[in-house]
Simulated scan of single mutants.
Amino acid sequence: MRYPVLVSLLPVSVLVAATACSPSGNTGAPNDATVPLETPARPKPRPIVRGAAPQAPAEPAVDSKARPRPTSVKTFGAWGIACDNGAYCTAVSMAPDDSSIAELSIVVERGPAADAPVSVTIGTPGSALRRVVVAIDGTPLASGNPGDDRRFTVTGPVAMTLARRLATGTAMTARLDGRTIPVVITGAAAALRYADAQQGRADTATALVATGDTTPATTPPALPTILAAPLTDRRAQAPAAPLVAQMRQRTGCAADQFGPVTNETYALDATTDLVLLSCGSGAYNVITRALIIRDGKASEAPFDLPPQFGEPGAKPALVNAGYDPKTGLLSSYAKGRGVGDCGVGQDYVWDGTRFRLAEMRMMGECRGAITWPVIWRTTVARN
Rank of each mutant, 00 (worst) to 15 (best):
residue 2 R to M: 10
residue 4 P to S: 04
residue 5 V to Q: 12
residue 7 V to P: 06
residue 14 V to T: 13
residue 16 V to Y: 09
residue 20 A to P: 04
residue 21 C to W: 07
residue 24 S to P: 11
residue 25 G to D: 14
residue 26 N to A: 07
residue 27 T to N: 12
residue 30 P to G: 14
residue 39 T to S: 14
residue 39 T to A: 13
residue 40 P to S: 12
residue 41 A to H: 12
residue 43 P to Q: 14
residue 43 P to C: 13
residue 43 P to R: 15
residue 44 K to D: 15
residue 47 P to L: 05
residue 48 I to Q: 10
residue 50 R to V: 14
residue 52 A to V: 00
residue 56 A to F: 14
residue 58 A to R: 05
residue 58 A to S: 09
residue 59 E to I: 11
residue 61 A to L: 03
residue 62 V to W: 06
residue 64 S to V: 12
residue 66 A to V: 00
residue 67 R to S: 09
residue 72 S to H: 11
residue 75 T to I: 12
residue 77 G to W: 02
residue 85 N to P: 06
residue 85 N to A: 13
residue 87 A to N: 14
residue 87 A to D: 14
residue 93 S to Y: 01
residue 94 M to P: 03
residue 101 I to K: 09
residue 104 L to P: 04
residue 105 S to Q: 12
residue 105 S to P: 06
residue 111 G to I: 15
residue 114 A to C: 12
residue 115 D to N: 14
residue 136 I to Q: 02
residue 136 I to W: 01
residue 136 I to F: 02
residue 140 P to I: 14
residue 144 G to F: 00
residue 150 R to P: 01
residue 150 R to V: 06
residue 154 V to W: 03
residue 154 V to G: 01
residue 155 T to N: 07
residue 156 G to I: 13
residue 157 P to E: 14
residue 165 R to E: 06
residue 166 L to I: 01
residue 176 L to P: 02
residue 176 L to E: 00
residue 177 D to A: 11
residue 177 D to L: 11
residue 178 G to F: 07
residue 181 I to D: 00
residue 182 P to R: 05
residue 183 V to A: 03
residue 183 V to L: 03
residue 183 V to N: 00
residue 190 A to K: 00
residue 190 A to V: 00
residue 193 R to W: 10
residue 195 A to W: 01
residue 198 Q to S: 10
residue 203 D to L: 11
residue 204 T to N: 03
residue 212 G to I: 06
residue 213 D to V: 05
residue 213 D to H: 02
residue 213 D to Q: 05
residue 214 T to F: 07
residue 215 T to I: 09
residue 215 T to C: 11
residue 217 A to W: 01
residue 221 P to D: 07
residue 222 A to W: 06
residue 224 P to E: 14
residue 227 L to R: 10
residue 230 P to T: 11
residue 230 P to Q: 12
residue 230 P to A: 09
residue 231 L to M: 03
residue 232 T to Y: 04
residue 239 P to H: 06
residue 243 L to W: 00
residue 250 R to K: 08
residue 252 G to I: 08
residue 252 G to A: 08
residue 255 A to M: 15
residue 255 A to W: 05
residue 257 Q to W: 09
residue 261 V to I: 15
residue 262 T to M: 14
residue 263 N to G: 08
residue 263 N to T: 11
residue 265 T to Y: 09
residue 265 T to E: 10
residue 268 L to D: 01
residue 269 D to S: 02
residue 271 T to N: 05
residue 272 T to C: 07
residue 274 L to P: 01
residue 278 S to F: 10
residue 282 G to F: 01
residue 285 N to V: 05
residue 286 V to G: 03
residue 286 V to T: 05
residue 289 R to N: 04
residue 292 I to K: 03
residue 305 L to R: 02
residue 311 E to L: 06
residue 311 E to C: 02
residue 313 G to V: 10
residue 314 A to K: 12
residue 315 K to E: 08
residue 316 P to I: 08
residue 323 Y to F: 08
residue 323 Y to K: 03
residue 323 Y to L: 09
residue 325 P to E: 13
residue 328 G to V: 05
residue 331 S to K: 13
residue 333 Y to T: 07
residue 334 A to Y: 01
residue 335 K to T: 06
residue 336 G to F: 07
residue 337 R to P: 03
residue 339 V to L: 13
residue 340 G to N: 05
residue 340 G to A: 05
residue 344 V to A: 05
residue 346 Q to R: 04
residue 347 D to L: 09
residue 347 D to P: 02
residue 355 F to V: 04
residue 357 L to M: 03
residue 361 R to W: 12
residue 362 M to R: 08
residue 363 M to L: 15
residue 366 C to E: 10
residue 367 R to A: 10
residue 367 R to M: 05
residue 368 G to W: 11
residue 368 G to L: 09
